[in-house]
Design a binder for these strands. Structure first.
Lengths: 248, 248
DNA sequence: AAAGAAGCTTGACCCTTGTCAAAGCGGAAT
DNA sequence: ATTCCGCTTTGACAAGGGTCAAGCTTCTTT
C-alpha cells in the first residue's frame, strides 16, 4: 500500500521531468524560428517547495505561470477568511489569467507538492502574439477554455448533490492524470479533504463521509490520500445526466 | 407603483438607445483611422424579441456579441435538463467568449426583453487585434474580467448562504445599473424567480422567501419584479465579510 | 524516540434549504 | 372583458448537509 503510494509518486516525477511546456501547454504549429522567439521569452523555470506561494492575491501581475511539474491549487479568500479553492492545476496548465484584467493577481497560487513552473511574461507574450498569429489564437483559446471550465464548476456548485460533486471531481482528476500518461484508476490526492471540500462547496466531513460511502459500495478504495477507482462506471452513472449536455 | 414600473422601463430604453458599443464595451484609445477599421468589422446590430435565442449551445461559433440594449441570460444545460444560468448581461457586456476554445458555443444566450446586439466576427477581431495592439490588449482584459467574474460566482456558490447570495446578487445588479446611469435603488428585475434561483444555486421558493424576509426587515420593497432598495447598507453588511478580500 | 500538531473518520444532532402542495395574482390572448 | 396560464407567495414537512465533538492515525518536529 505504502509501496503503491511511493510508486505513483515516483511515476509522476519521472514522467513530468520530460514534459516540455511546448508540448503540453502550447501545442501549436510553430516553425523553427518562431520556436526560438518563444523560447527567448519563456523565462527559466522556477522551483517551489510544498506549501510555497507562487503568487498572492493583490500582488502586481506581470506573468502567467505554466505548471511544468508538480501540483498547485488556486484560491480566493473572502474578507472574513473563508477560502474558495478555484482550481487544482497539474502539468501543462496555466495560472494567473485572472490577473490580466486589473494587472493585479486575483487569487493565490500555492504549490501542493514540490513543483516547477515556467514564467511567461505577459507583455512579451502579448507582443509575440502579434508576430505569430497562431500563438495569439492559442492564447485566446486558453483563456476561453478557462471560462468553459469555470462554467462547468458553476454547474457543479449550483446543481449537483454531494455525491455527484465528488464523483465528478474524482473522474475529472482521473481523466486529467490519464491524459498525462498516469494511471487513471490509481492515484494519490495531493490535496486535503478540506481543500477538496472548499473546491466542491462542501465541508470536509461531507467529503470524508462521501468517500467512505463510495468505498462501502465497492466503487473505489480509499487509503488516506491513495485512491483506487474500482467501478469508475458506477461513478460515471452517478453523474451522467448532470454533466454538460454537449459532452464538453 | 405600476407607474413607477413603467417609468423605469422607459428610462432604460431611452438611455440605452444612445449608448454606443465603443463607449461601453470597447473603451480604449483608438485614433480615427483605427476607429474606422473597427467600425468596418462590427456588423450591423441585430434585434431580438423577448425569449428569442441569440445562439444555442452546440452551434458553430463565429462571433462574439455585445449587448447594445436590452437584457440577456446565458445558461448551460445538463443532459437531464437541469439548467444553470451562468450570467445576466446588460448593455456593453459581451457574450460568447466560451465558444472560442472549441469553435462551438458552450452556452445558450436568450434575450430576457426585446434587445439589440452588435456582432463581432471573431476572426476579423483577432486579426484587427494584431494591427491595433491596444485592441488586442483590451480583448485579453475582457476575457480575463470574465474569468474574475466567474471566480466570484464560484465564491458565491461555494461559500455563501441563501441570504448572502441574494444580497450579493441585488447589490451587483444595482451597481451595474447605476454604472449605466440608471437608478441604483429602484429597478425592475428582468428575470424570473426561477432564473435568479438557477443563477444563485437556489430553488425559486427560497428566492421568494428570502425576498419576503428582506422586505419584512424593511431593507427593500418587492412588488413582483419591481425592487426598491431601502437600506442597501443592511444588504452590504450582510455580505461584508463574504466577498472577495481585495474589493475586486 | 517522543510528543505535538495536523488531518481524517465517525457519530449525534440541528438548521437551512429543498420538496410538495395550494392558493393568489397578473398578464396575455381570445 | 373574460379566461387561462404562468409566475409568485406561503405553508407544512422532509432531508441533505452543516456543526460540534470525540477519537484515531500519520506526519513533523525536536
Amino acid at each position: 500500500m505504502s509501496d503503491q503510494h511511493q510508486h505513483t509518486l515516483h511515476a509522476l516525477k519521472v514522467s513530468c521531468s520530460n514534459c516540455s511546456l511546448r508540448e503540453l501547454c502550447l501545442p501549436i504549429g510553430l516553425n523553427r524560428d518562431e520556436m526560438t522567439q518563444l523560447d527567448a521569452v519563456i523565462r527559466q523555470s522556477r522551483r517551489l517547495k510544498r506549501g510555497e506561494y507562487l503568487f498572492r492575491s493583490g500582488e502586481a501581475f506581470k506573468s502567467l505561470f505554466a505548471v511544468r511539474t508538480g501540483f498547485f491549487k488556486t484560491s480566493v479568500a473572502s474578507q472574513d477568511g473563508r477560502e474558495q479553492v478555484t482550481g487544482f492545476l497539474m502539468s501543462g496548465e496555466l495560472m494567473g489569467l485572472d490577473g490580466i484584467s486589473s494587472n493585479v493577481h486575483g487569487c493565490d497560487a500555492i504549490a501542493l507538492e514540490d513543483s516547477e513552473v515556467c514564467e511567461l511574461p505577459f507583455n512579451r507574450m502579448e507582443s509575440l502574439g502579434r508576430d505569430i498569429p497562431s500563438l495569439q489564437h492559442h492564447f485566446f483559446r486558453l483563456m476561453s477554455r478557462e471560462i468553459v471550465r469555470d462554467q462547468n464548476v458553476m454547474l457543479l456548485l449550483g446543481n449537483m448533490k454531494a455525491e455527484e460533486r465528488l464523483a465528478a471531481f474524482l473522474l475529472n482528476l482521473s481523466q486529467r492524470l490519464s491524459t498525462r500518461g498516469f494511471a487513471a484508476n490509481d492515484f494519490i490526492l495531493r490535496m486535503s479533504r478540506e481543500e477538496i471540500g472548499s473546491f466542491l462547496g462542501l465541508k470536509l466531513e461531507t467529503v470524508s463521509r462521501t468517500l467512505s460511502k463510495f468505498q462501502q459500495q465497492g466503487w473505489l478504495s480509499v487509503d488516506h490520500k491513495h485512491i483506487q477507482l474500482i467501478k469508475a462506471d458506477a461513478l460515471k452513472d452517478l453523474i451522467s445526466g448532470c454533466t454538460h449536455a454537449n459532452g464538453v
